[in-house]
Design a protein around this nucleic acid. Structure first.
Length: 103
DNA sequence: CGAGTGACCGCAA
DNA sequence: ATTGCGGCCACTC
């Protein structure tokens, strides 16, 4: 495609871009959808160094809690999620189980 | 160029 | 039920 540097990275970018506002996804799900169910760490690493323009604030861990290291802080991420309709409590997405985006 | 780290997940004992 | 360990790819220094 336009930037076929790495199929995995390209897939992660496409998947995160496919996540609709108001929903959240987990690192493991994105990694599994990208083809590597054990590469959840890579998704986090890319989020920190990869594309700072993608909606990484929709990424949460499998507990539904906001991850650390987010550019600006977890409170900033919670604000962005709340702005999209995702309510968070104590940095944990409310109704996470129902808000988890699934293809 | 080489090595280490990383916002994690799943499984085993 | 809980705890501890290993493992995958990409990015940076």
């Amino acid at each position: 495609m336009s930037k076929p540097g790495s199929a995995f990275r390209d897939q992660v970018e496409v998947l995160i871009a496919r996540v609709p506002a108001g929903k959240v996804t987990t690192y493991g799900d994105l990694a599994a959808l990208a083809g590597h169910p054990y590469a959840a760490r890579i998704v986090g690493g890319m989020a920190h160094y990869g594309d700072a323009a993608l909606p990484w604030h929709r990424l949460v861990n499998r507990f539904g809690g906001l991850a650390s290291g987010y550019h600006g802080g977890r409170e900033a991420q919670a604000e962005h999620l709340a702005a999209e309709g995702v309510t968070c409590t104590d940095f944990v997405v409310d109704n996470f189980k129902e808000r988890r985006w699934q293809p």
